[in-house]
Each structure stands twice: as structure tokens, then as C-alpha cells.
Nucleic acid binder design. Structure first.
Lengths: 244, 244
DNA sequence: AGAATTATTATGTATAGACATAATAGCATT
DNA sequence: AATGCTATTATGTCTATACATAATAATTCT
């Protein structure tokens, strides 16, 4: 029986949690201490509630939290077990480019290179789930950090989803930021990889052809309706960071 | 008053959620429909509970879920408001390499190239927060998918944190998987970027020197104690995918 | 034995009621 | 006007109880 649960919150206790968080911490401790080995079945909620001298709902809250993080797996009737191969989730935040630049202590600038209505290449049309015959708003632009090339953005916007975008010139506000503001999306997908930058993009980024660049592709949707597909080419050396 | 909450679960209802999920769905609908604008204060739990004809705890569960996703912000006394600039979080899962390979329908293989006790280069020592004089277990190995090079792994393990690792040969089980199993970590950090692959690594991956490769650096800790630092070099063309 | 049915069990969720806590707003004092 | 106390309020959490649901185990029927 751990006492932390009912312990009066004292000043000295740095890890002095109470309630369900104390339960959570204790369960976590047992997992890390290998009291309960990966794959092992841990006691039922009722049993733990009794041990900790709290209600089952409180144990449930703690276990649910651990389950959300992927540290334990729960199945009705089968019980709760320590995850064998905990799939760690790195949550990387996707801020607006301007803010990302400013967070690095640099001043942000951007310039539109192209702004046309055009038929998308097949790869783009497929991603958006649209036909190649639909004309889309095609925007190519550069982002700068302290006047150095930072990011090249090649974007296709579905005018059916965002009719207002057709009128916007995107010179005072970047498409990136404009869309976040006026066209919230319900879901999207991202994928990224490394590419040897091609000549055209290398010139824009002011680097050598063939340099390795981090390329991000992002598609966003509002319900069933595709909003935009964008290809982001970062300047060489750019790294994405996050914690586990 | 929405009825979905108490609705008898019928077969035809594809979006037929009940309970707190129905509340959540309705709240989400109002946010997306801009019924409640970004930044706006939404009704209190008590009020919503009354409207939906359920207990306050149920509304709380729904709101808490939305808050965890960053769609609303909650503060005691101040109430709940729709997030102004929802920082979209892409959660990318970091599975064990073997499982990642197998998920692609390929067979996984691996081979240890080097296994020594050595002093780490300064960059590694800094990352781990250790001195350059501490000898660490240095492991270099290759992962294969259907016998094609898939990933090159250059790893440094802190023997203080995982003494058992020094005895392990890592030929039947990869270091990656072994560590997940026997040395769970409490936290870590990841960063990734694109690099032009150097000659030595290019040979191992059987690609041309200078090809763009996705490089991941990962450090993991158990509490205060550093466990391992690893540099993962993916074969060219490898892309990481996730959803928003 | 094999299939279908029923019982059991652990988690999942809902409820009402209670108290805790943080933050604001209002009031009083200096 | 600045400060400090106090009341108020919305969320945070815990409790006990109840029923729902999924999955397994046991049982019965053929």
C-alpha cells in the first residue's frame, strides 16, 4: 500500500503528486523498475484500487493515461499488460513558417515566385483525390530568414475548398499563414524524406545542385474536401527536432 | 439538445457514437462549423451538461479530450476557449526497425559490423552528457530488408546504464530491439535531417557517395542516466509518414 | 467430438454528489 | 491609486454505484 495517494501535500516533495497521478507514477515506477516485465499481465483495476485504497475509477484514470502513451495495452476481459514493443510517439509540432523562423531569432521574409491557375501534375492530383483536369491555384514562393533562403514552397490550392484564396495575392501574408487563418483543416498527412536538390530548386535556395535537402510533403483536408498540397524544400542543414 | 447521446445504438449509424464521444463529436462540429470562433469562450461544463442532458463528468471527459489534442484551452475559473492558433501536432511513431521492415512486407536481417569499447567522439559525449574519457560500447550494424541495405546504425551505449549490454553479442537480436526490451527509457530526444552520404556509409548502404539520405539522431535516458546515442542512416528514398 | 449457448470477468463508461484548486472579480483598507 | 483580503466561479478530481461491452471460459446440446 503506497501512502503517496493520501499524503498531505508537503513542501519538500518534488515528486509529490496526489490522486490519480500518484497512482500513475507508482505504476510507471513498477514498469521501469521491471517489477512488471514487458508483456506481463498486471493486476486488475479492482485489485489495484484496493491496494492503493482508492476508487476503481482513479486507477482506471491512471491506467488509461499509460495506455494512451502506449506503455500498457488494455483489453476487456483479458486485462492490462505492459507493452512488449512500446511504440514511442514523437509528437512534432508544425508551426507556421514565419514563427519557426522568428523562433530562431531571425527576421522572416517571403516572396511569391509564381501564382497561376493551372492543371496539376498527376502526382499532385492523386494526392488531392482530384482529376488532372481541374485547374488549381498554383503558388510557388520562397521564405527567408535574415534574407537568406530558408524554405522553398510549391503549393497547390483547391479553389473549390477556398474560393477566397483566388483573390488573395499573398504578398503581405504567406499562403502558409493565410490558410491556417482562413481555412482550418480537419486532418491531413505529412511525409518527409531526403532528396538531392535539383537545379531549379538549388538556384532558388542558392545552394549547389545535388545538395541533400529535407523535403516535406503535406496534404490537408476539410472533412472530405481537399484543401491544399504543398511541397516544402528546406535549405541544406535544416534539422527537425523533437522529444520522446 | 442533441439526441445522439441517448440514442439506442442502431446498425446504420456510421458516425453513431454514444456517450462522451458523441458530446466530443458535437463540440468538434461546432468548432469546425465556426459556431464557436477561434479564441471564443465556450459555455461552461455545467451548462453543456444540462443542454446535452448528461452528467458534468461526461462533458468534462469530452472537453479534456479536445484539450489534449490542443483544440481547446482550459483554465480554471477562466473557462474553456477555442484555441486561436492550434499548433498541429504530428505524432510519428517510432517502431523497432525489425517491425518497420516487416510492416513493409519484407524480411528483416541485420549484421554487426563493429563491436568495441571505445572513447566516443566529442559530439557524442556532449549529447550523452558524459566525458570523452569514459569508454562506451560502440556498435555499428546494418539492417536489411529482403537482403537489401535498409538502415545503417551507429550506436554508443553507456555501460553504466546497461551493464548487461557489454556481455551481449547482438547477433541474434539487434541492439535496437535488445535495448527496447531490456533497457526501457524514460525520455529521449530525436532530430533528423538530410545529408549527402559519405563514402564509407555509402559503401555499406550500396549507394553512390553524395546521395541524399535521411539521418536520424536519437538519444535516450533513464531518469538522469544517459543510455544510448544512435545515428541512423536510412537508405536513399526512405520516407517517414504520419498523419495530422 | 464439435458446435452452440451461457456464465463469468475485466475493462469501459455514466451518474450524482462532494470537495479541491486556481484564478478572477469585488471590496475594503492603507 | 496601490495593496491585500474575500467571495465567487469554472475546472479538476475523487467517490460509490451501476450498467454496458467484449472476450474468454464453462457448459450444454446435438
Amino acid at each position: 500500500m503506497i501512502e503517496a495517494v493520501r499524503a498531505t501535500p508537503e513542501k519538500g516533495q518534488e515528486h509529490g503528486q496526489t490522486g490519480w497521478q500518484a497512482i500513475r507514477a507508482e505504476l510507471l515506477r513498477r514498469i521501469h523498475a521491471r517489477d512488471w516485465l514487458p508483456g506481463a499481465l498486471i493486476p486488475g483495476e479492482t485489485e489495484l484500487a484496493e491496494e492503493f485504497g482508492c476508487a476503481r475509477a482513479t486507477v482506471n484514470r491512471a491506467l488509461r493515461d499509460l495506455a494512451e502513451e502506449g506503455l500498457v495495452e488494455r483489453r476487456r476481459k483479458a486485462g492490462t499488460r505492459v507493452t512488449l514493443h512500446p511504440v514511442r510517439k514523437a509528437t512534432l509540432e508544425i508551426p507556421v513558417t514565419r514563427i519557426e523562423v522568428e523562433k530562431r531569432g531571425a527576421s522572416h521574409g517571403h516572396a511569391v515566385i509564381e501564382r497561376t491557375m493551372a492543371r496539376p501534375p498527376e502526382a499532385v492530383a492523386v494526392r488531392l483525390g482530384l482529376g488532372v483536369r481541374t485547374k488549381l491555384l498554383h503558388l510557388r514562393s520562397m521564405h527567408f530568414a535574415d534574407n537568406h533562403p530558408f524554405l522553398y514552397e510549391d503549393r497547390w490550392i483547391n479553389p473549390d475548398a477556398v474560393p477566397e484564396a483566388v483573390k488573395e495575392r499573398f504578398d503581405s501574408i504567406s499562403a502558409n499563414e493565410w490558410l491556417v487563418r482562413y481555412a482550418p483543416f480537419t486532418h491531413g498527412d505529412i511525409d518527409f524524406g531526403a532528396e538531392n536538390v535539383r537545379e531549379a530548386e538549388a538556384k532558388l535556395l542558392e545552394v549547389h545542385t545535388g545538395d541533400a535537402v529535407l523535403v516535406v510533403h503535406r496534404t490537408t483536408w476539410n472533412g472530405e474536401q481537399p484543401i491544399t498540397f504543398v511541397r516544402l524544400v528546406h535549405a541544406p542543414g535544416h534539422r527537425l527536432r523533437t522529444t520522446l
